[in-house]
């Protein structure tokens, strides 16, 4: 199974690459071109950077990627990668993929960024791995137009927002599964087994 990480800038891709590669038969590659990134069995949008610069890197291949997702290309978007699956963001200019309807806005909590381990409430994303606590590091969150895509919620102070969204074979997580220890790695592997294969 070919798994491609779309690399749209800075960030630690090592842990994510290794987490994906723990699943047998997975061949992970990193691709900087959005158009070429969709030539794969599974697309992963990793999680570090700012929305504006990531959207700019995405722009030339945005339509191709959006269309590939609609046609059933399995995709896991992590943190900023999840936010790129939505329409737009208050963090920066440019268009996201618009696969999920909604806008990305700043957390309304006092302590921002949220950095640390928080809950995933009632996670029903995958049957093979349920996450109850995961590592988050973010200032912005996705506000969904249709709550039925939310497969797990979380709360930081008074602000409640989606921890996980799923529609078809596309999953977006606000937390970092690759930084959520063994249960996070189990979530990544279960995604590859259940959604991608």
């Amino acid at each position: 199974m070919r798994v491609t990480l779309f690399d749209y800038g800075a960030g630690n891709l090592h842990s994510l690459t290794k987490a994906l590669a723990t699943e047998e038969g997975v061949d992970v590659r990193v691709e900087e071109s959005p158009a070429r990134a969709v030539d794969t069995d599974v697309l992963v949008l990793p999680g570090v950077g700012a929305f504006g610069s990531a959207a700019a890197r995405l722009a030339p291949g945005r339509d191709a990627m959006r269309s590939a997702l609609e046609k059933g290309l399995p995709c896991l978007g992590i943190c900023l990668g999840m936010q790129l699956l939505f329409d737009s963001s208050d963090e920066g200019e440019g268009a996201g993929l618009g696969y999920f309807a909604g806008r990305v806005t700043r957390l309304t909590s006092r302590r921002v960024p949220q950095i640390g381990w928080n809950q995933v409430e009632g996670d029903r994303t995958l049957s093979g791995a349920k996450l109850d606590t995961a590592y988050y590091a973010h200032s912005f969150v996705c506000r969904v137009e249709d709550a039925s895509v939310v497969t797990g919620w979380t709360t930081h102070e008074e602000d409640r927002f989606p921890a996980v969204v799923r529609r078809g074979r596309v999953v977006g997580v606000q937390f970092h599964p690759e930084k959520s220890s063994s249960s996070g790695v189990a979530f990544v592997r279960a995604f590859l087994r259940e959604v991608a294969s």
């Binding site: 090592h14 570090v48 590091a137």
Partner: peptide, 24 residues
């Protein structure tokens, strides 16, 4: 980073944006 699946912070000797990019 290839074996650790919790967050890793690095400090010391980081001076410029380029150093930070290299660390990440």
């Amino acid at each position: 980073a290839e074996r650790l699946f919790i967050p890793l912070t690095v400090g010391g000797g980081v001076r410029t944006v380029e150093d930070v990019g290299r660390a990440l």
